[in-house]
Write a protein that binds this DNA or RNA. Structure first.
Length: 134
DNA sequence: CTTCTCACA
DNA sequence: TGTGAGAA
């Protein structure tokens, strides 16, 4: 369960998620509105996304490219969500401890990609994330 | 400076 | 979906 906790850690802001997924902030917020992802909020009402959220966003992106509408995507994601179920999210995350250096981000991305290589996740997800650990 | 919400020529 | 206003 340790790895899952790591992946569930809310640590990136919109800017990072936007770059990681190659989706506009507008789109990310819109998908959240549709219940496709549910990032936790910091005290300053900032969204904090976890690796799970990023994975979902990447899948959403692919599904849309494949012509799946939001309703359909919701169905697909619903199955996966039932698997993970509730993230024991803290009600709020301290605003101050929100900075994440690029080195740390790349370090985490490496692990994510390597683990994806051994098991789960589609190759497209790895492909997307791979652009960031040069 | 970054992100949030809300509204729309 | 984008964009701009106004606040935090």
């Amino acid at each position: 369960m340790v790895n899952q906790d790591r992946k569930a850690l809310p640590l990136f802001p919109m800017s990072v998620v936007s770059e990681l997924t190659d989706l506009s902030a507008r789109q990310v917020r819109y998908y959240e509105e549709k219940g496709l992802v549910m990032p936790v909020r910091s005290k300053g009402n900032r969204r904090l996304f976890s690796f799970y959220d990023v994975d979902r966003l990447l899948e959403i992106k692919e599904l849309i490219d494949q012509g799946v509408n939001l309703a359909g995507i919701k169905q697909v994601l619903k199955v996966k969500t039932e698997h993970q179920e509730q993230i024991p999210h803290k009600e709020e995350v301290p605003e101050a401890k929100e900075e994440l250096s690029e080195k740390e981000l790349h370090k985490m991305l490496r692990r994510e990609i390597m683990e994806s290589g051994y098991m789960n996740k589609s190759s497209i997800v790895k492909g997307e994330l791979s652009r960031f650990y040069h």
